[in-house]
């Protein structure tokens, strides 16, 4: 093996490189082991309480009889409402900013604000939702108000990730499409959206996963914690959500409630995994139309 004449000046380069790789490996190991420990803990604690009965029962004053059905359905409704509003508005805003708005001070201002809004703590959106949806628009404390509040929380993330996905489409594709006499909308619909869809979907799923786990803004706008029915009216009926219910159970003094809280977390994780699986399936379906 011949040693380059330049490496003589750096006798420690190789050792340094190996040390850095080792340090990176340790960091990975640390974060993975924390995660494993956490899951281990939760599964160990909650597994015995988990049953089909637990999933399909109403909450109760007795931990042993308590179930998570109303919270599970409430969360699914919330995610549905949130997706209904945040996906079209978010993707639409991203398309406008990337494909229509000419570069201007105004656009940069909007852009900076969206980036900042993505970093605002969700409880602040809860207060906004309380003022805007619950009080001003008289949406009460129903699923609609909750979903709209969560829409506020995730909208900046959906816009930013969709913009990123659109920006990743090579500009030569746009040029080719316009040069063939396609309109802006045709170019967006036939070329840009199909190509950027996997990226957009990833952003949407990440955002909705976040919405699923949010408790703080829902507590602020007044989601209930003890609901023995599933909401029929999206405005007037009370509802609860998985993180709110879990939070409530962990607040109880009895250990039995802590156990069902852990079981609730397992349910929450399952819904999350199901959502991500759905995203993978959708992505594969749609990407059939694009042939890289």
């Amino acid at each position: 093996m011949s040693v380059s004449k330049y490496s003589e000046g750096r006798p420690y380069a190789k050792i340094a490189s190996q040390a850095f790789a080792l340090a990176c490996g340790l960091c990975t190991l640390l974060s993975v082991s924390v995660l494993v420990l956490l899951l281990w803990n939760i599964f160990g604690f909650g597994w015995s309480s988990l049953s089909w009965d637990f999933v399909t029962s109403w909450p109760s004053r007795f931990a042993a009889k308590s179930g998570i059905w109303s919270a599970l359905i409430g969360s699914l409704y919330l995610i549905g409402v949130t997706a209904l509003f945040s996906v079209p508005i978010g993707v639409g805003a991203a398309i406008y900013l990337e494909e229509y708005a000419p570069p201007s001070r105004w656009r940069s201002l909007v852009q900076i604000n969206i980036a900042n809004l993505a970093g605002v703590p969700s409880i602040v959106y809860g207060i906004l939702g309380l003022g805007l949806f619950v009080r001003m628009m008289h949406l009460n404390r129903g699923v609609l108000a909750g979903g709209l509040t969560l829409t506020l929380v995730v909208l900046p993330i959906i816009i930013l990730s969709s913009q990123e996905a659109l920006r990743a489409v090579p500009s030569t594709i746009r040029q080719a499409s316009y040069a063939l006499g396609a309109t802006r909308w045709q170019t967006i619909w036939h070329q840009l959206l199909p190509i950027s869809l996997p990226g957009i979907l990833t952003g949407v799923i990440l955002s909705l996963s976040r919405a699923l786990g949010e408790a703080a803004p829902l507590v602020v706008i007044g989601a209930a914690t003890f609901v023995r029915f599933t909401p029929k009216n999206l405005i007037t009926d009370d509802y609860t959500a998985l993180p709110v219910q879990i939070f409530n159970w962990t607040e109880q003094p009895q250990v039995a409630f802590h156990e069902i809280a852990a079981a609730g977390i397992i349910v929450l994780l399952t819904v999350l995994i199901a959502m991500n699986a759905l995203a993978v399936i959708l992505r594969q379906r749609f990407s059939k139309k694009v042939r890289w």
């Binding site: 040029q175 499409s177 040069a179 006499g181 694009v290």
Partner: peptide
């Protein structure tokens, strides 16, 4: 652009 077509310097087929 429908009346004036163009072939680019770098080929740019759509991913279709």
């Amino acid at each position: 652009r429908k009346r004036v077509g163009m072939v680019f310097q770098k080929s740019n087929p759509f991913p279709k």
